[in-house]
């Protein structure tokens, strides 16, 4: 038993060095060659960093496309979902309120066209994306606030849609931060 303990102890020390230090450092080193150099990919506007490509941001003004509801208010240092059960009465009340709020800000939209992703909280609270429908449905509001034509905005959203992998696998989506950056550029033209 004593030798088994000694052998186990020595093996543990060696493997901690290998797996807790050598392995992660190797990966950090490899990641230096990747976009973002292992620090996460950032986006800039006028050479000023305005966010991470993959981290959703909170957009609340009517002049921007809005993302999904977040259980943590887009706190990127404390991700979480709502963890509400699908039949929880309090939760369903919240969803109803979100639908009503959306209709107040977008009076032209018909209730049956509101896509589910705009009134349900994401898993991480940091979802950077919305569905293409969720972007298209906000066009009327944004066109009015920014004095842009619907055709212009339709083209803009169309350009920002990321198609499924190889056109075959997975859903289509729109990155809200990139879309809003492109929107600001369009307004400045």
């Amino acid at each position: 038993m004593k030798t088994a303990f000694k052998q186990s102890f020595a093996l543990t020390v060696i493997l901690i060095v290998l797996f807790a230090f050598v392995y992660p450092l190797t990966i950090s080193f490899i990641a230096l060659l990747s976009p973002g150099k292992g620090n996460g990919v950032k986006l800039s506007k006028n050479e000023k960093v305005i966010g991470y490509e993959n981290i959703g941001q909170k957009f609340y003004s009517d002049r921007y496309f809005q993302g999904r509801p977040s259980a943590v208010d887009y706190n990127a240092a404390g991700s979480a979902g709502s963890n509400k059960g699908t039949t929880n009465p309090d939760y369903l009340k919240t969803v109803k309120e979100r639908i009503d709020t959306f209709l107040v800000h977008n009076p032209e939209v018909k209730r049956e066209n509101i896509p589910a992703d705009l009134v349900t909280a994401s898993a991480s609270g940091l979802d950077p994306d919305i569905s293409p429908d969720a972007a298209y449905i906000q066009i009327k509001r944004i066109g009015k606030v920014r004095n842009l034509s619907e055709e212009q905005l339709n083209v803009l959203v169309g350009q920002q849609i990321e198609r499924p992998l190889f056109g075959l696998f997975g859903p289509s989506k729109v990155n809200v931060l990139k879309l809003n950056l492109a929107l600001d550029n369009l307004s400045h033209k």
């Binding site: 709502s82 699908t86 589910a116 992703d117 898993a123 950077p128 919305i130 859903p171």
Partner: peptide
């Protein structure tokens, strides 16, 4: 889109 509470778009 399905039941999207607690799910991610991507």
């Amino acid at each position: 889109l399905g039941s999207m509470e607690g799910k991610e778009i991507r």
